[in-house]
Nucleic acid binder design. Structure first.
Lengths: 195, 195
DNA sequence: CCGTTCATTCTACGGTCGTTGACCGACGGT
DNA sequence: ACCGTCGGTCAACGACCGTAGAATGAACGG
């Protein structure tokens, strides 16, 4: 038996190359979006030939589909207040580190129908749980607004890199957003009057 | 003098054709984004040859620049509460009708540097006024969050067409967002404790 | 009425893209 | 040691893109 790290077996080599390609694809799709990312660029970033990418993944669409992985982190049920806090925590997690996969979807969803679908179905379970937890007739609209807020913030922080949003700490952002989330997950006090 | 509508003069004809091209460009840029919109498609939609578009506008970039017009509606100064309300009113205006120009910028800004710049500079005056009106040290972050919320909502309503957001009336959306805007433009009560 | 301008079209060039298929050379089972 | 398998490269095709420039013909000014 050869030393375990001296010469990699063929299967190992293949998995390793595939992973290098997927990494490069994730990076480029997140940075440039679907259209501007070229298979040749992915291949070159991974140190291989463009033909190999086709050979392994079949097409650009399939490469994109396999590169973007959506962990879809789940939301615990509970009172509307608890759900708001869980949602804030989920946002906090997404504001630390850079999940290249979901950034790729976010970057591409406005110009690529497939990415748009992926975005929809990825957020759907969260959206449904959210809707179920909000005790008002317009729960679905409220949940959609929360989704819009979350993605707006992430897009401007990571994709557009608006300085004030990019520099802020996740805690700072979450603290400022907490009243928003609470007001959207909570029915209005029975007699509220705008001054 | 020929009848005013019998045979159009050459200048009239030109202005008319240019406007048809710009209309088609606005529609296509808003619908497909910068990359997927082709000069040939714009020309064909306007009923002219692609060469003519080049002849009139010089390049695809210049066509895009001229097609997207940013009215940049101004924000009156005032107390933070008044600014919040003015911002809500501005959002309401943008939620009725479909300003194809700004949708084109919004659709393209994630994949086109020029559109991103245009988006930044278009929102900048509003952002500055907003920052000036918020009486907290983190005013700039708060203003950025408000901007992110606004654009997130518009993007999901008009570009992604999430059903619950697309079907809702502007008033409904604004009413739900009002507490958000108020909490972001207002310093927190001196002793707030999250339960 | 003639020469010019100009709106408009046609054709074509150079480049890039996704994708294909032939080809090469090292690994691995027998 | 042989030979099929398979990771990987190379060259090319067809489509489409942005763009340039010549050609056409009708409107215009003198």
């Amino acid at each position: 038996m050869t030393g375990s790290n001296a010469r990699p077996t063929r299967a190992q080599q293949r998995r390793q190359t595939e992973e290098r390609i997927l990494d490069a694809a994730r990076r480029l799709f997140a940075e440039l979006g679907y259209d501007r990312t070229t298979i040749r660029a992915v291949a070159s970033a991974a140190g291989v030939d463009a033909g190999l990418v086709m050979h392994y993944f079949g097409s650009k669409d399939l490469l994109f589909a396999q590169a973007v992985e959506v962990p879809a982190d789940e939301l615990p049920g509970g009172t509307s207040g608890e759900v708001a806090e869980a949602l804030l925590a989920s946002l906090g997690r997404r504001l630390t580190g850079e999940p290249a996969g979901s950034l790729a979807v976010l970057r591409s969803m406005l110009t690529n129908a497939d990415a748009a679908d992926r975005y929809r179905t990825a957020g759907e379970p969260q959206l449904n749980q959210l809707t179920a937890a909000i005790p008002t007739p317009d729960a679905d609209l409220r949940a959609s607004l929360l989704s819009a807020i979350i993605h707006g913030v992430i897009a401007e922080r990571y994709l557009l890199r608006l300085t004030h949003l990019a520099d802020a700490s996740p805690e700072q952002i979450i603290d400022l957003l907490r009243p928003c989330f609470q007001s959207l997950t909570t029915p209005p006090p029975t007699s509220a009057k705008t001054l």
